[in-house]
Design a protein around this nucleic acid. Structure first.
Length: 587
RNA sequence: GCUGCUGUAGCUCAGUGGUAGAGCACUUCCUUGGUAAGGAAGAGGUCAUGGGUUCAAGUCCCAUCAGCAGCUCCA
């Protein structure tokens, strides 16, 4: 797979983030010049560049970006020197007169902190720095986009206009970054979804609901099979639970109380309110509670590809990555406190197998007890957190500490995966829960004959099929590995009279449950090759006179133009082997 | 939800208040081609939807729906 990452930086006179912060200042000064009535918000450097927030009367347009860039270059030439001066709080207030947001920002700075301004030309900004020394150094920058952003990220506050830009120490690095952005755009799952006929959504059906087309259906089914194979081996049993349930169930679970803004309105069935489930746990818990449980049957590992529906605000919906109806690869483990560490270790191992099965690198984060509003005894938290740590140790899994990042009902391990473009996504999660066993009064009879409380572990590895497959489309750039590719083999006759031979080959492949497209329709061979290539079919088999006469095929692998002539049986062996191993090799 | 932008053929996009366009894809016919586009013809549209302004609206205005860039929130 092509490893496309951001180009490494050459030796830098200042850190890249410092440069970007300084260019943000430069941009703000240009905006001040062009729009004298502007009020300034914050303007930090961020992962791939910088932004600055402005309160302007008129909305900015893309044309303004060009004007601002031009003004920036002028200012950088004319008054390049960045000068720091320290001031008292009183002086700062005076100098920020009329700048409401800056004055508010000033109040956020602790009393004992030394205040400073950075100035170039006649523009200055309250800022602790650091900055580069002069703005006329060699570097390259670009203003990228305009967007709304709430002052201090709070939607109760007024909305400011944010300009995003980026900067690098040389033109080559900026160009490389722009190339990377282009690649990100090319691989966008929404774009590929249309081009490859993978999925759609419809105004008729409503925003945020995904329609999986047949080709993506194949991909999903393969992923589900892979998932079930590993889960079955890991001792999970399948369960199936209803999409809707009586509202009272969600009152017991607490979802109604804590999660109602995400839940769809009740529907009336026999004068009783029912709700569409936003999570699968209550259903699994009802199965657990269906009869008494003994310590002898724990741990119980129950898995369900459970479809849930959640209300998401209209502006948050995004392709397959953020939707209103989705299928979680959910499972719940009911176990004794003593079993917890082993169970978590088992999940960690499963996460590893599944994520690396798709070629993802990952990082795991241990999220511990939040400072307030938690439930459960301190001792339970300690034991569970220790179990998570022990499990990670057993699996030799390094954990990054996310202090206080746990849920209110228990500590958790979250995973972030890194895709082929170096972007991070959060999908997998393993969560201990002290809350639901309590609310549903879950028990098991221990060896001493006493009723005890089991621990509940929620875990999802793919997260949701929608989000995971969306990420996967971008990760592979539409080039699915053989085992889950929608069409695995394209068979192409050179002339019409070779069609029969090709159909014979296709049939033998189909008998092995391979997904085959026998392109025997009337069209020129070159056109079919182009089409198969465009559809990212892993293998093309091309057959003409020579192949028909000796039972061979001319194999062309995705991404190459070379042909390998081989006996059909040898090809069959090759393709079956690759499929069985769920190989990620680009064939 | 909020700010800004967008909605014309299946896709990518032209279109000056006055007769609805191109390329690709599709259909039919011709073409028998050895590794990325053979040729010709044809069909395809309530210009997102609903109001309004106007002699006249794809074009201007408003609303709704949907999408895009973000903010906030999240699997």
């Amino acid at each position: 797979m092509s490893e496309l990452k951001e180009a490494p930086q050459a030796v830098e006179p200042f850190p890249l983030s410092t440069l970007r912060h300084s260019v943000a200042h430069l941009m703000a000064s240009a905006v001040a010049k062009l729009f004298p009535e502007v009020k300034f918000g914050f303007g930090p450097s961020i992962e791939h560049g910088f932004y600055y927030d402005f309160d302007l009367v008129e909305p900015l347009t893309d044309k303004d970006l060009k004007r601002i860039e031009k003004e920036m270059r002028r200012i950088a030439r004319k008054t390049p020197e960045l000068v720091r001066h320290e001031v008292s709080r009183e002086e700062a207030r005076e100098q920020l007169a009329g700048q409401d947001y800056k004055l508010e920002a000033l109040e956020l700075i602790p009393e004992d902190e030394q205040l400073s301004f950075y100035a170039h030309g006649d523009w200055q900004d309250l800022c602790q720095g650091p900055h580069i020394d002069t703005l006329d150094r060699d570097y390259a920058f670009k203003l990228q986009s305009i967007a709304g952003a709430y002052w201090r990220g709070d939607e109760a506050n007024p909305m400011l206009q944010r300009i995003y830009g980026t900067a690098f120490w040389n033109k080559e690095a900026l160009t490389a970054h722009m190339e990377w952005l282009k690649e990100v755009q090319l691989r966008d799952h929404r774009k590929l979804g249309v081009e490859m006929d993978l999925f759609s959504h419809h105004a008729e059906a409503g925003s945020g609901f995904i329609f999986w087309h047949p080709d993506l259906g194949c991909v999903r089914r393969e992923i589900e099979n892979f998932w079930w194979d590993l889960h079955t081996r890991a001792g999970y049993k399948p369960v199936y639970t209803p999409l809707i349930s009586r509202e009272s169930l969600f009152a017991v679970s607490g979802h109604l109380e804590n999660y109602s803004e995400m839940m769809y309105a009740p529907m009336d069935i026999d004068e009783m309110p029912y709700r569409v489930k936003p999570m699968n746990c209550p259903g699994h818990i009802l199965i657990y509670k269906n009869r008494g449980r003994s310590y002898r049957e724990l741990p119980l590992r129950w898995a369900e590809l459970g479809t849930v529906h959640r209300y998401e605000r209209s502006g948050t919906i995004h392709g397959m990555l953020r939707v209103r109806g989705f299928t979680q690869d959910d499972a719940h483990i009911f176990c004794t406190p003593d079993q917890l560490a082993d169970e978590i270790a088992g999940v960690c191992s499963l996460v590893h197998q599944i994520l690396t099965g798709f070629g993802f690198e990952y990082t795991a984060y241990l999220a511990t007890r939040p400072e307030k509003d938690t439930i459960g005894e301190a001792e339970s938290w300690e034991r569970a957190t220790a179990a998570l740590k022990d499990a990670a140790k057993m699996q030799k899994l390094p954990l990054v500490l996310d202090e206080g990042g746990g849920a209110f009902y228990g500590p958790k391990i979250d995973y972030k995966i890194k895709d082929a473009l170096g972007r991070e996504w959060q999908n997998s999660t393993i969560q201990c829960d002290f809350n639901l066993p309590e609310r549903f009064d879950l028990t098991y009879v221990d060896s001493d004959g006493k009723k005890k409380r089991p621990i509940l572990v929620h875990r999802a590895i793919l997260g949701s099929l929608e989000r995971f497959v969306g990420v996967l489309i971008e990760h592979f750039g539409g080039k699915f590995p053989l085992w889950c590719a929608p069409t695995q083999v394209a068979v192409i006759p050179i002339r019409e009279e070779h069609g029969e031979y090709c159909r014979g080959l296709a049939e033998r492949l189909e008998q092995e449950l391979l997904r085959v497209d026998c392109m025997s329709q009337e069209a020129h061979m070159n056109k079919k090759i182009k089409e198969a290539q465009a559809r990212q079919v892993p293998f093309m088999l091309i057959a003409g006179e020579r192949e028909c006469s000796d039972g061979s095929v001319a194999l062309r692998r995705r991404g190459t133009r070379e042909q390998e002539v081989m006996a059909f049986d040898d090809f069959l062996e090759l393709v079956l082997k690759l499929r069985a191993s769920r190989s990620l090799e680009l064939v």
